[in-house]
Lab assay of single mutants.
Amino acid sequence: EMEYEEITLERGNSGLGFSIAGGTDNPHIGDDPSIFITKIIPGGAAAQDGRLRVNDSILFVNEVDVREVTHSAAVEALKEAGSIVRLYVMRRKP
């Protein structure tokens, strides 16, 4: 069973403070093209906020749908998102 969360982060000097993997051209798990959080960087915006978790998958960055995009398109969406970034994420319920 999945749960969904909308997380708004303010981009810090060091960016959003997380790493991603995945994409249609580089699936992270099997042939699932989802964009997954692979690392939360200590002291970064995501770590300070505390809600984003490793293995969360990002569905939307602001209004941009990143469910079926290449890795570089997801990176671009995050880069272009401005200083306030709304992430709509999905994760397995614990």
Rank of each mutant, 00 (worst) to 15 (best):
E1M: 02
M2G: 01
M2T: 02
M2S: 02
E3I: 14
Y4H: 13
E5Q: 12
E5Y: 12
E5N: 15
E5R: 12
E6W: 11
E6P: 03
E6Y: 15
I7Q: 00
I7Y: 15
T8R: 04
T8D: 12
T8K: 05
L9P: 00
L9A: 03
E10Y: 05
E10I: 07
E10C: 06
G12W: 10
N13H: 08
N13L: 06
S14H: 08
S14D: 06
S14Q: 13
G15H: 04
G15W: 07
L16G: 12
L16H: 02
L16W: 10
L16P: 04
L16M: 04
G17H: 13
G17M: 13
F18V: 04
F18S: 00
F18D: 00
F18P: 00
I20D: 00
A21W: 12
A21R: 04
A21L: 10
A21M: 07
G22W: 06
G22P: 04
G22H: 10
G23Q: 04
T24A: 11
D25C: 09
D25V: 07
D25E: 08
N26L: 11
N26R: 10
N26F: 07
P27C: 11
H28I: 15
I29W: 07
I29N: 13
I29P: 08
D31Y: 07
D31E: 11
P33L: 07
P33K: 11
P33G: 10
P33T: 10
P33H: 11
S34M: 14
S34K: 14
I35Q: 10
I35N: 04
F36T: 10
F36M: 13
F36D: 10
I37V: 07
I37E: 00
I37M: 02
I37H: 00
T38K: 12
K39T: 14
I40P: 01
I40H: 00
I41Y: 14
I41H: 08
I41M: 09
I41D: 02
P42L: 12
P42D: 14
G44D: 05
G44M: 06
G44Q: 02
A45M: 14
A45F: 10
A46E: 01
A46S: 08
A47V: 09
Q48I: 04
Q48D: 03
Q48K: 09
Q48G: 14
Q48M: 04
Q48N: 12
G50N: 07
G50H: 09
R51P: 01
R51V: 11
L52V: 08
R53Q: 02
R53I: 02
R53E: 02
R53V: 02
V54P: 06
V54D: 15
V54E: 06
V54T: 07
N55P: 11
D56W: 05
S57H: 05
I58S: 00
I58T: 01
I58H: 00
I58Y: 00
I58W: 00
L59V: 11
L59I: 07
L59S: 14
F60M: 11
F60W: 11
V61D: 00
V61I: 10
V61E: 00
V61L: 09
N62T: 03
N62E: 10
N62F: 01
E63K: 14
V64R: 12
V64W: 13
D65N: 14
V66Y: 03
V66G: 01
V66S: 11
R67V: 09
R67H: 15
E68K: 08
V69N: 08
V69I: 07
T70S: 10
T70W: 03
H71D: 15
S72Q: 12
S72L: 08
S72E: 03
S72Y: 12
A73H: 12
A74L: 05
V75S: 10
V75D: 04
E76I: 15
E76G: 13
A77R: 11
A77S: 11
L78Y: 02
L78C: 07
L78F: 02
K79C: 01
E80V: 14
A81G: 06
A81V: 09
I84N: 15
I84R: 06
I84F: 15
I84Q: 14
I84S: 11
V85I: 03
R86S: 11
R86N: 07
R86G: 10
L87E: 00
L87W: 00
L87P: 00
M90G: 14
R91S: 12
R91I: 10
R92C: 04
R92K: 14
K93F: 02
K93D: 10
K93H: 02
K93I: 01
P94L: 05
P94F: 15
P94D: 15
P94C: 02
